[in-house]
Design a protein around this nucleic acid. Sequence first.
DNA 1: TAGTGGTCTAGACCACTTC
DNA 2: AAGTGGTCTAGACCACTAA
Lengths: 264, 264
Amino acid sequence: MAPKWRELADRIAKEIRSGAYAPGEQLPQIRDLVEAGEGSKSTVHAAYKALEAEGLVTSSRGHGTVVRDQPPLKRLGIERYDKAKWRDGDEVAFIADRVASGRAYRRNEQTQTVSKVPAPPVVAAAHGLPEGADVYARARLVKEGAQPTHTLTSYYRPEHVEGTRIVDPTPGPAGRGGGFRVLYDAGYEIDHMRETLFARVPTTDEVQLLQLAPGEWVVELHRTTFTADGTVVEFALGVHAAARFSWTYDFKVPDSATEDGDAR
Amino acid sequence: MAPKWRELADRIAKEIRSGAYAPGEQLPQIRDLVEAGEGSKSTVHAAYKALEAEGLVTSSRGHGTVVRDQPPLKRLGIERYDKAKWRDGDEVAFIADRVASGRAYRRNEQTQTVSKVPAPPVVAAAHGLPEGADVYARARLVKEGAQPTHTLTSYYRPEHVEGTRIVDPTPGPAGRGGGFRVLYDAGYEIDHMRETLFARVPTTDEVQLLQLAPGEWVVELHRTTFTADGTVVEFALGVHAAARFSWTYDFKVPDSATEDGDAR
DNA sequence: TAGTGGTCTAGACCACTTC
DNA sequence: AAGTGGTCTAGACCACTAA
């Protein structure tokens, strides 16, 4: 038999999903359920904690326990990198994203710090540099209104970006056109990319920074950007609140028996 | 100040990561830590539960609490769909995967059930069918030895697969060459795919089926497979233990200002 | 100040594994 | 039978929020 706290949690979860509690609505208070014979305070508390870990509710002292509204997934496709957006237009990839989804862009939705740092192992590997070599790191925290959604840190080789706007530590999307535009102006036109994704438990720092609910996971995204001749011009590492995003990729079925120069 | 159980958990986590406890080694028993003045049984138990949720240890009654070994991520790239593997060779995609990683293939590592079911909403949408239309569902549970790693359910339109080996409910990878080979033989050569990934909390059923640790998330993968003329011949839905996989995709930076027929 | 969730204790008892 | 983690209770007290 399932534990008492698990049964209680499942029962409430079912009620939430059936719509008996609307998003924003308060759940019964712990002491009330104790009174109603659902168990001791610890037992009811365990059930509420489980619901919180499952992302259904948020609890806070003084406030109570309220049903979370489930914001729709933010869908990310490769069209967010469309050259037309950053080369010809006024937009930066992440802004274009907003435009497409009907949200207004606000300047302070992205904070940025630029610094010269020794390359961490994954960065060095991506750039083909010895570990610890100097690279420029441009770290951003991207927000949706007041809610942080992900971090994104781009690493560049010094010889590619020194003397460009990227090195200017002014907050904001690296000026008109963003980082890709700056590289383009410097003679490095990006051509293809490789993205790797995996999910993991967040660090305690990330929990604070991204305002993650207890038990919530993150997805780490590694993006390596190449020019047409295969030079790596950017390696970016993003940490996303896992529950808030989906990723979509289109590709041809590879066929190693043919060499048509199309597939990669 | 952080709660006492959190401090204890962080201290132990640090020791584990520093290597003070080797994988497979037992942590001190709860009662011992109570004796040592780390708090009451509930407090120490809360700390251990947190470590379990973070994937560092597994607890079981009778056994104790042991440090988990972190199996390396299984890396999935699009080369696992290489036509050479299922068209010309003897392998099926998932077997080729094993071969590449040096693991032996065993017949019983995949169980399969085939049935005709009314299409769930996402399936109907992918196939362009009305909701509830009949489709064939081929559900597999894939294991790595005794450890289940993911489920994968493929949905086919009846007119594409009736009379083929796919409909034969024999356990195993749908015969020589797998599902793609069967479609190929039936005149539907797969050409391109779209994959969408997102992470979510598992259902209680999935926790059992995939033997997930408490607090562990899953990644849901939607794969739509097309022929060259754009016909959808398969929609597959996979549920993966999130901590055990990474996905990699290569793509050209799109450029909507040109129409070179290469990018999609 | 009143009301909310969060932590902690001490101890009883249960469930499962191993010997 | 002995030893492990898991559940549960009753109650004290703490931390934060809102009126």
